[in-house]
Nucleic acid binder design. Structure first.
Lengths: 155, 155
DNA sequence: GTCAATTAGTTACATATGAAACTAATAAAG
DNA sequence: CTTTATTAGTTTCATATGTAACTAATTGAC
């Protein structure tokens, strides 16, 4: 068999973009179920709560940047969270377009319940990896993320 | 700061499920654009073509298993591919419910054009990794996939 | 054989998502 | 100032997606 012929074979199960997608979807589905079941939150709502808890007073635009969500998704997640009373919005004094977001007391309580559960799920996911392997994973993901960055189009 | 307090902090950017999701979406978006731009295919249509090219005569159900797609997505992808003439369907002789799928000549031609392009995109994505790192990546992804398997619920 | 249960695949419906248009506020140019 | 351009965020609309209901064919129990 010639080299060209060999290279022309594509096995989906060994194809990195496919494997990444399947792995990510499996993990996301599990976590999404967890958040929804336990707290009635979507993944996007949880992401918004996570960064709002970490940086109170953050704006919707900034949330979008920190969470890799587009502004429509952010807007909808915020609307839902306000409706159920987990976050509140104050219009910025200095800029009337901007609103500043904060967890309410109820939101804080939920936040503090989810964080350990989420970290625990992550720990369980990684527990089959040795500490060295966890470091490797970190490094590899950073490299791949840089490699796939839309600033540096591969395709 | 107590241990409990330290553990309670969750930084989204360092949270594996989040990082996986962002990486996978970045890669998928790039590849989806490529397939669509060059060949007018969705990712799902491409997955169906990939396995049909690799295993002619495969059924829709089997495609679902090999591609981690649900049967509705498979059905729709097939419908689209038949419509544009990339695949054809023959009802199984032995089982009238089952249909067997094949690339048409046109489908074959496209398949043979895409495969090297897809492999090349994968190569570019991984080219920042040394050969050792590529092996590590393989191993780590296998372990994570096993760890996240829905058969072994973590959450 | 006949009837209930299973399987392959499609269709219908309800929800999720993203692009583009829109509103309101601020900034920048003259 | 006033008018033009930009920015923050929301709404609209068209498409994508998943669940559940459905159709058609096969298998299994009797």
């Amino acid at each position: 068999m010639s080299d060209e012929e060999k290279k022309t074979r594509l096995r989906l199960r060994e194809f990195l973009p496919y494997r990444l997608s399947v792995l990510s979807n499996t993990v996301s589905r599990g976590i999404a179920n967890l958040y929804d079941r336990e707290f009635g939150l979507t993944i996007w709502q949880w992401r918004v709560m996570a960064v709002t808890g970490d940086a109170p007073g953050i704006s919707a635009t900034e949330i979008g940047q920190r969470t890799a969500m587009d502004k429509v998704a952010v807007s909808r997640a915020i609307a839902g969270l306000i409706e159920v009373g987990h976050i509140e919005r104050k219009t910025s004094e200095s800029d009337g377009r901007r609103s500043e977001l904060f967890l309410t007391k109820a939101g804080q309580d939920i936040y503090e319940m989810i964080v350990p559960i989420a970290l625990d799920a992550e720990r369980k996911l990684m527990e089959t990896l040795s500490s060295d392997e966890q470091d490797q994973l970190n490094r590899l993901m950073q490299k791949l993320a840089a490699s796939a960055s839309p600033d540096r189009p591969l395709w």
